[in-house]
Design a protein around this nucleic acid. Structure first.
Lengths: 205, 205
DNA sequence: CCTTCTATGTACCGAAAGGTACATAAATGG
DNA sequence: CCATTTATGTACCTTTCGGTACATAGAAGG
């Protein structure tokens, strides 16, 4: 039925993963179609036939990143017992991923398209929405802790979520700048050191 | 003596400042020579005669950024009394600059060239060195506090400096993503909330 | 076997990138 | 007044960008 015509000679999953890695390493603008096709092991017409356009390919690469990198790490937020613990573990899993020697350093969602020409504004907004998503997850976990009575009624979860989001994003930059995993871990511990005073300060008057 | 030949018809300071603003807004790769020349109010040959090349122009723009944006804000680190206060004020001045409605959001040094093609690796390293400079300033201020007895002997200033550097860089991303000044200020307060426990934890065994 | 359908590789497109040749304009030195 | 020096504007260079036309290869359907 759907097996009409010449079968494709490449593995789309492998190709997309290769594209993801290059986008992750070089960013959206920094990865050229020619390089992308090369690492994917295919020619440009095959690339366009299978993935549509550079922007479309990028979005699919981000989706793959979400599934293969993001999802696994975000689970800690729900699996780990206790808010504080959950957030600490979430940060830790992130920083471990950021320094994986087999992969580009830092988070693709943070680094791949922070800035650039007006033509690619859509791509940047797409990534910004992904970042907002991560913040929302953190926020949800905090609100759940309030619901469950672990955090005081009236705790301002927005500030706490914003703070840890900021640290998380800063960690990506540190990772790209060459920080070791031990250094990143120390930064994470520093961020968690303030937990008690932070939640104490975040209760509405 | 040096006033031979046709005098230049444009103000190099204004031109460089305009270039800085475009690089700040769009990043190194994202700002094209044609756009740069346009906002500088000159033609490309004049640009090349006065500033050398795109990379050279960029470095001069970063230098100008250092002088006009960085220096002023870094002074707080030394002028403000007390380490904690100095760092808090330093972060605050930064975040106020990051949300100045008359200027691009966030820090140019953090945002303008985080990622990109191999050709511009030199530019990225140049900016990375600038970021290291800022961290070094923070570190120096902390060590001074140890010297002066304000912080305990054996305090690990590296971790503290890394932590606040990470927060500072994260703030640039938050600013670009549209956070208000109030939100950024709340994040900074959250980062400072952990001060006491952070310095307590950072004393060597 | 022949048509139909999809995938492939080559070779190319127009646009835009960074950068420059060159003729001319505007100043100073003699 | 003329030579020299530097800046300007136009028009162009080469390369590379994202994207595609087109002829061909390889499978299934009839």
């Amino acid at each position: 039925m759907s097996t009409r015509g010449r079968p494709r000679a490449f593995d789309p999953d492998f190709a997309l993963r290769s594209a993801m890695n290059l986008f992750w390493e070089r960013g959206y603008e920094g990865a050229t179609l020619t390089e992308l096709a090369a690492v994917m092991g295919i020619n440009k017409p095959s690339l366009y036939a299978a993935f549509g356009s550079k922007e479309s390919l990028f979005r699919q690469a981000v989706s793959l990143y979400d599934v293969t990198e993001g999802r696994r790490v975000e689970q800690a937020l729900y699996v780990e017992p206790g808010v504080r613990n959950a957030i600490a573990r979430f940060l830790e899993l992130n920083l471990e991923a950021y320094t994986n020697p087999d992969k580009p350093r830092g988070c693709m969602v943070v680094l791949a398209a922070m800035i650039g020409p007006p033509e690619s504004a859509g791509t940047r907004e797409y990534l910004a929405a992904q970042r907002a998503e991560t913040r929302a997850l953190l926020h949800q976990r905090l609100e759940r802790a309030v619901m469950e009575g672990e955090l005081a009624e009236g705790t301002d979860c927005n500030v706490i979520a914003d703070f840890y989001t900021t640290v998380l994003q800063g960690l990506s930059i540190q990772a790209r700048d060459g920080a070791t995993q031990a250094q990143l871990r120390a930064i994470m511990r520093a961020a968690m050191a303030g937990w008690e005073s932070l939640i104490a300060e975040s209760v509405a008057a």
